[in-house]
Design a binder for these strands. Structure first.
Lengths: 221, 221
DNA sequence: AGTTAAATTAACTAATAGTAAATTTATATT
DNA sequence: AATATAAATTTACTATTAGTTAATTTAACT
């Protein structure tokens, strides 16, 4: 009976995926409450209610487990850029103003809904040496996805320039500047922040000012 | 003989400072070639041609040693801001344009002369949990210095606004934006960079574009 | 020359990332 | 239903390395 075996294989895959998800959930919980350095694999195993070697069944190293938390974040970023790209090709933007606001909202919302993931992204930017040590599959997945997002963002900016929404600025450099601006501001804020809502409000007003300045600087009027 | 004892105490202090400097030099060398995680204290000791416990005589932990590398960088930053503040109070600036260029140059030069120190600064922004574990003296020194630099930068911006060189923008937020912009851009560039001079030239042109955009956005015309 | 204090080190402990081998669990076969 | 096989899991281990202790060396002082 082929069908039966097929069904079993499917269930097994499901269970495997579930186990991976539960490990990721536990890892997220522990990493984000204690920080990368002070987190131990035993503690993650305890949180996931399994033994340590089981984690190593699915993730080759601590670094790889940590980095894996980043992928969903990068993917979500990509989806948002794709949404904006579609809106652009559909000629839905009548002013560069709205476009810049949409771009900033990607970042702002990502910070609001998943500030943790953003912290992982910071690691991505900083610990390049760590990334290089990952197993090739994970590294490729993360690195490729990162490059894809970068390129996507650049393409969106270039399209906006071509449509006359933004001033004629080198889109590669502009993409780096916007990306850096957001990463940098959230990082500087993170450093000052003390988890109070007050601080988060302050971040929002700072980002909102940055948005105004960028609109002044790059929108074609 | 009081004089003799005094002289000996002075030499001892000198020797102690020298030892600290040689440890810092060795640490710098190893940390920056291998990254924080893959650097061992034994390796630093070997590089400094002393034994490991001697390092612990002067630095309480690995984190503290790493963080100590940052202080000279923060101090240099402060000196640069003080220079610009003096220029401002002496009414040497006739346009906001020149001021912004001077500010950007602080960052650009710091990256050119000591890109390594900047990488330590990135850690500072990211591993806040690490900073919190430092011994109180070191933490206070670094944290105070960081706050001082931030405040100094803000004061410079506020003075420039008061003098009518820059548009009337909240100086706290603006300071965070500029600081974040630079940290973020260098980080994004660092990620892409592969140590080729070509990349460094690209960073410079990107920063130069960022400078133009910021001038457009904040200089009063 | 002998005493004391400080700096240095050899030899250690504790913690933890990662692994190997044994065990359990679940599936397939007779 | 009993047995064989394969996969997942765990117990018990190794290796590395941050940090410490106690012994040793070095140098100042009497």
């Amino acid at each position: 009976m082929q069908k039966h075996q097929q069904a079993i294989r499917e269930r097994k895959k499901r269970e495997k995926d579930q186990r991976i998800q539960s490990i990721l959930a536990a890892a997220k919980q522990v990493f984000f409450s204690k920080g990368y350095l002070k987190t131990t694999m035993d503690e993650i195993a305890l949180e996931a209610q399994i033994s340590k070697p089981t984690i190593y069944q699915y993730f080759k190293t601590k670094d790889e487990l940590y980095s894996s938390l980043m992928l969903p974040f990068l993917e979500e970023f990509g989806r948002q850029f794709e949404r904006i790209e579609k809106k652009l090709t559909d000629r839905k933007y009548t002013s560069g103003n709205d476009l810049v606001k949409d771009l900033f909202n990607i970042f702002i919302r990502s910070y609001e809904t998943a500030p943790d993931s953003l912290r992982v992204a910071h690691t991505f930017f900083q610990h390049q040496d760590l990334i290089n040590e990952l197993n090739p599959d994970t590294r490729a997945a993360i690195s490729d996805r990162g490059k894809y997002d970068f390129e996507l963002a650049r393409r969106v900016l270039q399209a906006a320039i071509t449509q006359g929404l933004l001033r004629d600025i080198d889109s590669f450099a502009l993409s780096d500047i916007l990306w850096g601006l957001f990463v940098g501001i959230t990082q500087v804020m993170d450093m000052k922040a003390t988890k109070h809502d007050q601080e988060r409000k302050y971040l929002k007003s700072t980002l909102s000012l940055a948005e105004k300045l960028i609109i002044d600087a790059i929108v074609l009027k």
